[in-house]
């Protein structure tokens, strides 16, 4: 999927993750801020990378603010954000 414009999904609440997906010309770039970064940072980044792969996204900037989301939550939020970002922009 091609990222056409910025889109987001998720919330800033506990056990959730807020994911922003932006167009990029520079492959995949992940900026993660997490309350559990020290313990799960690498695992969250891995989940994001894998999910992007499965969705066929090869270029994107992902900004994620995590408050202890489970893997399935991360996948769901990221998938929603990517789908929104890949849609044609709605006329304003």
């Amino acid at each position: 999927m091609e990222i056409k414009h910025g889109a987001m999904a998720g919330t800033l609440e506990s056990s959730d993750i807020m994911v922003t997906v932006l167009p990029s010309s520079d492959g995949i770039q992940i900026d993660l801020t997490s309350s559990v970064e020290q313990y799960y940072g690498d695992s969250i980044r891995e989940t994001i990378t894998k999910t992007l792969e499965e969705l066929g996204v090869s270029s994107a900037r992902v900004e994620a603010v995590d408050h202890g989301a489970l893997d399935c939550t991360i996948q769901a939020r990221l998938t929603t954000a990517v789908r929104r970002a890949a849609k044609e922009e709605v006329a304003k």
Partner: peptide
């Protein structure tokens, strides 16, 4: 009560809709 995070989330969404990332 976590009110700030919900409010900030709302404002970020508004900014994104305007194209301010």
């Amino acid at each position: 009560e976590g009110i700030l995070s919900r409010l900030v989330r709302h404002l970020i969404e508004v900014q994104y809709q305007r194209g301010n990332y």
